[in-house]
Design a protein around this nucleic acid. Structure first.
Length: 556
RNA sequence: UGCCCGAUAGUAUAAAGGUAGUACGACAGAUUUUGGUUCUGUUUGUCCAGGUUCGAAUCCUGGUCGGGCAACCA
């Protein structure tokens, strides 16, 4: 509250509630995923919001799995969700499951039946849909709507006992068939599903619907602020109705706009499709917007939290530009990643006046952004080096600050060199660049007086370590692949994954550890992939560096 | 054509009747042994029409546009 930063609308509500002494000033939120898929960056927004609110107002947050649909939910998803929330840096107060409340929920249903507010309906799904009417016409009552309480009680108990088949009967709330809010036209509370539940096994064959589970779970847990997304706005009236009829703790629901991001899909259903139909290699394929994919790709938890902080919380539909996410990870990694040199598309450079067989070792600080540089590593140097093919041009333009006939550059951490010539093969490809070095220009001890505009990275040929490097680009070619009326599968970016089987890196990379971010100088941020092994390194590019030269080059 | 949400630079998000601000992006320049980082500067906005008021992004009325709602999903 002491922060100068303005409050989002939910914080305003909470501060008002605290001021009024509501719930004794207590703030208790919850993050309620359904364990039917992996969490994505949109969930991260919700996680940061819910846990962040509790942190800010000295409250607590429950992790509650909304597991009321046995046919879609699996323990694998529960485990991944817990891992992701933890990794993001949040600790939940209680690990809970809506299925923990099945007995209690059953009791709530019985209470409503006794009040004459719920009835067992034997209509078919189609009949029930018909009975709901349309947005402009009132619904019509089911023939079973006015069954006596005793009969409802008996039938509902029989439903639980397993006396009926799936779909044979449902329990419906008796509310208002003429309500302009479709959700109030006698919504279904319970359905029959003879299915194995990931936690309760076959203990139940009736399962509560979302609307008869979520709000009640909030209430049971004493949730003070139940934050969900916009599409649940019409459910709020139902949420309140059940709580009021049941006379239980009055949790309140508040809705914010979910996150959408350019060039990405953000629905579990579609992400599942990408996985099942083989467009990506699993939920944690680094091109996916899932938390596990971002983590594997090299995104840090801090950068994702920062992103969620920057996008704000409001009720307006929004589409965030992915470039903001990229900004966040670059900003974080720039401060923490250790610098290394790697050549992704190599061409050989020979220093003609450097004695054959001679070697020397240079030192490069690990992190120039840190005050002490975080130590340094040794970088061997020799007569033959790998440099980036794009760092040499036979006919360079005036603004090109790299190598070309007669041009000079500095080799990072080493000497200034001058290009004297090059060799081409029959196809006209440059196969070797010849340079001479200036001995007086040694890095850190430069008395040559020469100033050069460009500095390039390099790797000593005899000392190079190889790795498979995977470069990722956006998965889709268009900004809104999820738009109505188009099949997102037709807009997959064929270049979203580019594999470099053998890139050359400076030898210190054999010491790289999992989870550590590296900046390959002038190339981008990289990290070890989970498939990496000591003898066979596999490296993911997290994100490129900002590239003003590319912009310049595009302009022509 | 029922009900419900929403509308501020390119994208987000502030301003609670009193100077329309911030971030990202874009553009220009400085610094730089990463064409990175950092720093400086510039650019672009209140959906429309009425009304209330000394004064409206904000309040009122009417429109327009966008989104949502009629799963035994959540």
């Amino acid at each position: 509250m002491s922060e100068e930063r303005s409050l989002n609308f939910i914080e305003e509500i909470i501060e008002e509630d605290i001021k009024n002494g509501k719930h004794g000033g207590r703030v208790h939120t919850r993050f309620p995923p359904e364990p039917n898929g992996y969490l994505h960056i949109g969930h991260a927004k919700s996680i940061c919001l819910n846990f962040g609110l509790a942190q800010k107002y000295n409250g607590q947050t429950n992790l509650r799995f909304d597991d009321t649909n046995p046919e879609k939910e699996e323990t694998e998803y529960v485990d991944s969700i817990k891992e992701d929330v933890k990794w993001l840096g949040f600790e939940w107060q209680n690990e809970l499951y809506a299925s923990d409340y099945f007995e209690q929920l059953y009791g709530f249903a019985v209470k409503l039946i006794n009040k004459g507010k719920a009835y067992v309906d034997e209509s078919t799904p189609d009949e029930i849909a018909g009975q709901k009417g349309t947005p402009t016409e009132a619904g019509t009552p089911s023939p079973w709507r006015d069954r006596p309480v005793e009969e409802n009680l008996r039938l509902f108990a029989e439903m639980r006992e397993g006396k009926y088949q799936d779909g044979e009967k449902v329990l419906r709330a008796k509310i208002d068939l003429a309500s302009p809010n479709m959700h109030l036209r006698d919504p279904i509370m319970y359905r029959i599903r003879h299915a194995e539940h990931h936690r309760t096994g076959d203990a139940w064959c009736i399962y509560p619907m979302y609307d008869f589970a979520h709000g009640q779970s909030d209430s049971i847990e004493g949730i003070t602020h139940s934050v969900c997304t916009l599409e649940f706005i019409p459910h709020r009236a139902l949420y309140d109705w059940f709580i009021e009829e049941l006379e239980i703790f009055p949790s309140k629901q508040y809705e914010f706009a979910r996150l959408n991001m350019t060039y990405t899909l953000m629905s579990k259903r579609r992400l599942l499709q990408l996985v099942n139909e083989g467009f990506v290699n699993g939920w944690d394929d680094p091109r996916m917007p899932t938390i596990s994919a971002l983590r594997r790709r090299g995104y840090t938890a801090a950068s994702i939290r920062d992103f969620c902080d920057r996008i704000g919380v409001a009720k307006r539909e929004n589409v965030i530009d992915v470039s903001l996410l990229e900004f966040c990870i670059r900003e974080d990694l720039n401060k923490t990643a250790w610098r290394r040199m790697a050549v992704l598309d190599p061409v050989k450079l020979v220093i003609t006046n450097y004695p054959e067989g001679q070697e020397e070792v240079f030192h490069g600080e690990n992190n120039p952004e840190a005050e002490d540089g975080e130590g340094s590593r040794e970088i061997p140097f020799s007569r033959e080096l790998w440099i980036e093919r794009e760092d040499f041009m036979e006919n360079p333009s005036k603004k090109y600050f790299r190598l070309g006939p007669g041009l000079m550059v500095r080799l990072k951490h080493a000497y200034i060199i001058k290009c004297d010539g090059f060799i081409k093969d029959e196809q006209g490809n440059v196969t070797e660049v010849h340079c001479s070095y200036i001995p007086e220009s040694k890095s850190g001890d430069d008395v040559s007086g020469i100033k050069v505009k460009g500095t390039i990275h390099w790797v000593s040929v005899p000392h190079a370590v190889t790795a498979e490097i995977r470069l990722y680009d956006r998965l889709f070619r268009i900004e809104d692949p999820g738009a109505d009326g188009l099949d997102f599968r037709e807009y997959i970016n064929p270049e979203s994954l580019q594999i470099i089987p053998e890139a050359y890196m400076e030898p210190d990379m054999v010491n790289a550890e999992f989870g550590k971010g590296f900046q390959f100088i002038r190339k981008g941020y990289f990290t070890l992939d989970k498939e990496s092994e000591p003898g066979k390194l596999v490296i993911n590019r997290t994100v490129t560096l900002r590239d003003n030269w590319a912009k310049e080059a595009r302009k022509g």
